[in-house]
Nucleic acid binder design. Structure first.
Lengths: 221, 221
DNA sequence: TAGCTAACGTACTAGTTCGTACATTAGTGA
DNA sequence: TCACTAATGTACGAACTAGTACGTTAGCTA
């Protein structure tokens, strides 16, 4: 998540607006993800930075806007990753499976992002709503899904007339739940969904599920 | 959620430990679900009760224990509902579909519970861990799933050797995500997953997915 | 190199928030 | 009916927390 390197410069007051801003965002991301919006402490964020609380207000205006900025950057990272998607050279079945796996991997690799999204949902997505930037940029993954689905339908591999947004929701559900609800699920069922030993199992389970859904003859009722 | 009725008694100080306790729990459930653990205000909970803040500390000890009590009751409600499950007279395919639908319905009917679970996950399930009661009671639904899966395998209807906990996770993922991430998903993709007009669509989509997964020949790779 | 401003630091405050000390009373059992 | 205790109410305090007033300086530019 674009973390900030140590400067090779000597100590003393150094001025670097970009670095200061980025460092605040890094630490704020961790702190908000750790404790939730209200649980996060502006003083704590400042303390874990090489700068002071004053700078948080200087650059971001307040706690609320800081959280919005954190969200904006986190969603930006996802969007970048989705733009790297390169699965359309595969046949539709393999492409969808690969897409599901990459979604799976990305969720696993970014638990902080998952937590931020959970937190934002607790607050009714009010920060997304307040952010012009996050409004309606859509997701590159969605376009990829749309194209794969179309080609799968054409070639007759996919039986169902499935909507791209719905399929995206289905894939995300599984990936998100596994990371977001890891703790309660583990406490209640004694099973760690993010156990590395089970990783491959759940990864293929997701792919199997999605492919089965798309290729089923939709008869048994 | 066991809400408290108005008493037919006249005004003036009335003593009813059970009622006071239950009323605090009711209001606390709403307040925690509304604002998260740290966002919730003890004073606000007290204000919306016919009693005072003093009683919260008298009965529960503190904010932390109050939240734990709220969780305990919320999970209790779910467990009761799961004990009502009556699907095993159906054939395995219909039984699983029905179970999925009931899970779907229950999630939709209890958004506050979903929010509480999200909140508890943000805090690493520490309250569940601290609660003796919530430790390892397991879920009645899990036993039902186990039996249906066994009977489905025997009769040859289900191809896959699927684990009950895994299937439970799969079903819960979809139901949970739909409610919990409603706000961010809606803001980003312009689609309300909990739109009543789409309810039947998503409900059957879940059933189709689960049945497809369980009856697939698991060949296409 | 002088001066200007973006970038930064210190110290403080106003308001909030969890929690409690202390006083009171309803209802029960002897 | 009296006394005792569980249940309740009031008023307050200590600690925290977001935010700010005010002063300082690095580094660029003319």
């Amino acid at each position: 998540m674009t973390s900030v390197e140590e400067p090779a410069r000597p100590n003393g007051r150094i001025r670097d607006a970009a670095r200061t801003r980025a460092e605040i965002l890094d630490v704020a991301t961790q702190e908000f993800a750790r404790a939730g919006y209200d649980g996060a402490r502006v003083d704590e964020i400042a303390a874990r930075t090489r700068t002071t609380k004053r700078m948080i207000y200087y650059y971001f205006g307040g706690k609320e806007q800081l959280f919005t900025a954190v969200l904006e950057r986190a969603y930006g990272v996802i969007r970048e990753a989705e733009q790297e998607l390169d699965v359309e050279h595969l046949d539709p079945v393999a492409a969808i499976r690969r897409l599901a796996e990459l979604t799976f991997d990305h969720h696993e690799a970014h638990p902080d992002f998952i937590r931020l999204v959970s937190i934002e949902n607790i607050h009714g997505a009010q920060h997304i709503a307040a952010s012009g930037e996050l409004g309606k940029i859509g997701s590159p993954a969605l376009d990829v899904i749309r194209r794969i689905l179309a080609s799968g339908r054409e070639s007759g591999l996919f039986t169902a007339d499935v909507d791209a947004v719905d399929l995206h929701a289905m894939i995300s559900s599984f990936c998100f739940f596994r990371v977001a609800n890891r703790h309660t699920f583990g406490a209640l069922f004694g099973r760690d969904l993010v156990d590395p030993a089970q990783r491959e199992h759940y990864r293929s389970m997701l792919g199997d599920m999605v492919i089965a859904y798309l290729t089923a003859d939709r008869a048994p009722r």
